[in-house]
C-alpha cells in the first residue's frame, strides 16, 4: 500500500471539508473493497476519510410505509434488526448471505451501494424496491442512481447518508453464490409493491451491473408464482461470461433465482 493520510471525522460536514482539502481523497466505510484495492496498489488516495463511525450515519428507522437504513450501518446490525426482519425480511436474508461473518461485521450498506460492484447484493434490493438514496446534497431515485460498472450518480465528494426502502407487499431474494468469493454469480430480488407493481432486479449477471428484468416482471404480473416463470426465456445478450460461468448459464440462473425468490417471498 502506498502512503496515505487517515482521518476519522465525527460529522458529515467535517468529512466533506477534509475530502475537499485532500488532493485525491477517498471515503472509507467498511473498507473491504477500498483497502484490498489499495494493498494491490491499484489506487493510492492521498487521504482516506473514515466515515464509518459518524453517529448521524448509523441506525435503522421504520415507519408504516418506509424502512430507512442509515448508510454506515453494518451488515451485522441490519441482519439483527427487528425492524428490518418485521418490515422487509428479504433485506435481512440478503444481508445474511453477503460475504462471511467477519466481512459482515465491517461492511456497510452505504459502502456497498456507493461502490456498485456488478456482483454485489444490495444494488438488486435498492433497484427492485425502488429505494431512494439520500445523500448530504439530495435524494436520488434508484432508477437514476446506478450507472454501470462501479459507477453511480454520486458526485466525487458526495456521501450517501441513508437509503429509504418503500415497504412492499412481498419481496424475496435468492442468489447463486460464488463459493470462493461469496459474491453473487447471479442474484435476483423480486418485489410486489403495495400497489401491485412487480419489480425484479438481477445482480451479478449483466456486464453493466444491476438491471431490471422486464420478461420476468411481465410473467409475474400475470401470475405471481414460481411456475409462471417456467416458460420464460432470458436472452444472454449483454450478460457476463467468465471462468465462473458463461452468459448462457447466467441467463438461466436469472430465471431459476427469480423462481426461488418468488417462492421465498410467498
Amino acid at each position: 500500500m502506498y502512503s496515505t493520510t487517515y482521518h476519522r471525522p465525527s460529522t458529515v460536514e467535517e468529512a466533506v471539508a477534509l475530502f475537499a482539502k485532500g488532493s485525491d481523497a477517498k471515503y472509507l466505510a467498511g473498507g473491504h473493497t477500498l483497502l484490498p484495492v489499495m494493498k494491490q496498489r491499484l489506487t493510492a488516495p492521498s487521504d482516506v476519510i473514515d466515515i464509518a463511525r459518524i453517529p448521524a450515519l448509523i441506525g435503522i428507522e421504520a415507519s408504516a410505509d418506509t424502512l430507512t437504513i442509515k448508510a454506515a450501518t453494518t451488515y451485522v446490525d441490519i441482519v439483527n434488526s427487528a425492524d428490518v426482519k418485521r418490515t422487509i425480511p428479504a433485506i435481512a436474508h440478503l444481508t445474511s448471505v453477503v460475504g462471511d461473518p467477519a466481512v459482515r461485521a465491517r461492511g456497510t450498506i452505504g459502502g456497498s451501494v456507493a461502490t456498485n460492484d456488478p456482483s454485489a447484493d444490495y444494488p438488486a434490493a435498492v433497484l427492485a424496491l425502488n429505494a431512494t438514496i439520500k445523500t448530504n446534497k439530495r435524494s436520488i431515485a434508484a432508477e437514476d442512481f446506478f450507472k454501470g460498472l462501479f459507477a453511480t450518480a454520486l458526485d466525487e465528494n458526495e456521501i450517501i447518508t441513508a437509503i429509504s426502502f418503500p415497504i412492499p407487499a412481498k419481496a424475496g431474494y435468492s442468489k447463486m453464490r460464488n463459493p470462493a468469493s461469496r459474491f453473487a454469480l447471479t442474484g435476483v430480488f423480486v418485489v410486489q409493491t403495495k400497489s401491485g407493481e412487480i419489480r425484479v432486479a438481477a445482480t451479478g449477471a449483466s456486464q453493466n451491473g444491476v438491471m431490471r428484468v422486464p420478461a420476468i416482471e411481465a410473467a409475474l404480473k400475470a401470475n405471481w408464482s414460481a411456475s409462471a416463470l417456467d416458460g420464460v426465456k432470458i436472452s444472454d445478450e449483454g450478460l457476463m461470461a467468465d471462468i465462473h460461468g458463461s452468459s448462457d448459464y447466467r441467463a438461466n440462473l436469472i430465471k431459476v433465482m427469480a423462481q426461488r425468490a418468488v417462492t421465498a417471498a410467498g
Binding site: 487517515y6 476519522r8 472509507l28 473498507g31 473491504h32 483497502l35 484490498p36 482516506v48 473514515d50 464509518a52 451485522v76 462471511d100 461473518p101 467477519a102 466481512v103 461485521a105 465491517r106 470462493a180 468469493s181
Partner: peptide, 24 residues
C-alpha cells in the same frame, strides 16, 4: 480478506486484521 487467518476481535467482533487500518 478471504482466508480468515488474521481474525482478531475488535470491541468484541471478529474482524479481519489484514483489512483494517490501525487508525480504524
Amino acid at each position: 480478506s478471504q482466508c480468515g487467518a488474521c481474525i482478531v476481535h475488535i470491541d468484541g467482533r471478529a474482524v479481519k486484521s489484514c483489512t483494517t487500518l490501525v487508525g480504524q
